[in-house]
Amino acid sequence: MTPSRLRGSLVTAVTWVLVLAFFFPVAWMVFTAFKPEHQAATVPPTFAPDFTLDGFDAVFNRDMLPYLINSLSASVGSTLLVLVLAVPAAYALSIRPVVNVRDALFFFISTRFMPVAASIIPVYLLLQSVGGLDNITWLTILYVGVNLPIAVWMMRSFLAEVPRELIEAAQLDGARLGTEIFRVVLPIVMPGVAAAGLICFIFAWNEFFLANLLTAQVARTTPPFLTSFVDGRGQFLAVLSAAATVAIVPVVLAGWIAQKQLVRGLAMGAIK
């Protein structure tokens, strides 16, 4: 082996050690989820436990399903609404002439930077006065407000990459706006729509602050529900790990499968 190849393998080995160290907390969580409770928190750690599904059983016996369904409806609902609003807006900003493109874009991106602290008190009081607390529809609507600017920003970047000639050709052919959008532009930017949708879904699924504050029992979503697994009286690590594993699976799997879109979406949203 030449010195440079040796060095290469060394760097590869270091890379793998670091990557695995970084991934360790996730792996350990999943591992702990399959342990019986008495082997979950031991000194020293149990590396060869009696694998069991008891933790997952306990999680669903505590009725996790309604919380997952709430999370799912808030995330999917808000993502769809966001896309319906963001795609036309981004289209107007990047392909159709609008008077103040920069002003509008500037507005969207600056609302993204506005902390929730800026609006949470009036939102809470308003929802309280109309009986909108602990209501999944209101939570969904608020998630639209949170994610809309990101989606507009990302979609604008993706739409800017559509070859102008293609649209002009369609317009010369006398294509109506609907045809222009649905037949010509949308098929090209579909990966972009998927990327923006995925990122909105992830943010909504993982959101804790608003969910914790604005929901109680009926509309409670998964992130605040997870905290209820911490039990001051006894051992809870296996059940907690099982619940956390269930909670992260949808987003982690989606992110892994659609990794290309995710990376592109983040890069587009961040850089362009």
């Binding site: 990557v19 695995l20 956390a244 992260i248």
Partner: peptide, 13 residues
Amino acid sequence: TLMITPFLVMPAA
């Protein structure tokens, strides 16, 4: 893939 996972993990979890 392994490296992007921490970013996907629900912050509460």
